[in-house]
Amino acid sequence: MNRSVRLLELLQILRRHRRAVSGQVLAEELGISLRTLYRDIAALQAQGADIEGEPGVGYILRPGFMLPPLMFSPEEIEALVLGSRWVSSRADNDLNDAARNALAKIEAVLPSDLKAHLRDSGLLIVGGERGSDGVIDASLVRRLIREERKVEMAYADASGRASERTVWPIALGYLDKQRIIVGWCELRQDFRHFRTDRVVTLTPLPGRYPRRRTQLLKEWREHVGISPPPL
């Protein structure tokens, strides 16, 4: 276990204890010496962790401390790298740039051993190709979803026949080769899925739609039988 991972584990152990826990118990759980434990406690305190206590008395972590980015485990870093590479190969240019910028910010504050792990990750995204959004701007759709805005949409079906819809967009699904707008369709009075490459025109309307997106998304998941994604 490298030091960064060990410090993360020490914080998690302290979080599990509501009362002061002795250094000996902490050292045994981590499989380290008391001397190493005391150094690790001092290192976490220097990073801003509100750990109270002293040798012979015990230690307790006060609430409110947030893990700094340097506390990512190697597995968490691999998840971030893999997700970033998937976005770069499947999503639009704006999300591609955002993923690269996010990784650069994380790399800037990682210790040297974890920086190397980030740069040299052996996880690859193989095959597939970036889907087409046709005439619409995916970044605009994402903004309208965040703002809970209605849109006027001309949408073509598989035969090319276009219909005018007023839609409440609630989600944007990224499939392997396609992107799907999930929304409430006023014409059909039901949830509908719209392929972005079949949208002929998309015009934002003023004001928000009358219901909260979170509630609509919950109803859509129940409608199609999809469980909420893990946090």
Score class of each variant (00 low, 15 high):
119 R>G: 03
78 E>A: 14
31 G>P: 07
29 E>L: 13
11 L>Y: 00
156 A>W: 04
106 I>P: 02
10 L>H: 02
24 Q>L: 14
118 L>M: 15
162 A>W: 01
64 G>T: 05
163 S>Q: 06
211 R>E: 12
67 L>R: 13
137 D>V: 12
61 L>I: 13
152 E>Q: 15
46 A>N: 08
59 Y>P: 02
178 Q>D: 05
51 I>G: 02
134 G>F: 02
56 G>E: 08
215 Q>T: 09
17 H>A: 11
209 Y>R: 02
188 R>T: 06
95 L>V: 02
56 G>L: 08
77 I>F: 06
9 E>H: 03
225 G>F: 11
231 L>C: 05
35 R>T: 03
91 A>D: 13
133 D>S: 15
138 A>Q: 14
81 V>D: 12
97 D>C: 05
65 F>D: 03
138 A>C: 13
172 L>W: 01
53 G>F: 09
42 A>H: 02
15 R>Q: 09
140 L>V: 14
225 G>L: 10
96 N>D: 15
125 I>G: 03
91 A>H: 07
191 F>C: 09
76 E>Y: 06
171 A>R: 14
23 G>R: 04
153 M>A: 04
185 C>T: 00
172 L>G: 01
162 A>L: 03
37 L>H: 00
208 R>I: 07
179 R>K: 11
66 M>E: 14
170 I>W: 03
119 R>I: 05
146 R>Y: 08
54 E>V: 04
220 W>L: 14
183 G>R: 01
5 V>D: 06
216 L>G: 03
102 A>R: 03
207 G>V: 13
28 E>H: 08
153 M>V: 14
187 L>C: 00
88 S>C: 04
69 P>I: 05
176 D>V: 10
109 V>G: 04
79 A>W: 13
87 V>P: 02
170 I>L: 13
108 A>K: 11
131 G>D: 07
148 E>N: 13
107 E>K: 10
110 L>Y: 12
28 E>R: 11
54 E>M: 08
205 L>S: 00
98 A>F: 03
96 N>Q: 15
25 V>Y: 02
108 A>N: 07
35 R>K: 08
169 P>T: 10
1 M>S: 07
216 L>W: 06
189 Q>R: 10
88 S>N: 00
128 G>N: 11
211 R>K: 05
136 I>E: 04
21 V>L: 00
126 V>H: 12
184 W>L: 01
210 P>W: 13
114 L>R: 14
191 F>G: 02
37 L>P: 02
218 K>E: 14
97 D>N: 09
62 R>E: 12
224 V>E: 03
167 V>E: 01
118 L>Y: 04
141 V>I: 15
77 I>Y: 05
66 M>P: 01
25 V>I: 11
104 A>H: 11
174 Y>Q: 11
106 I>R: 01
199 V>H: 06
40 D>V: 03
33 S>V: 09
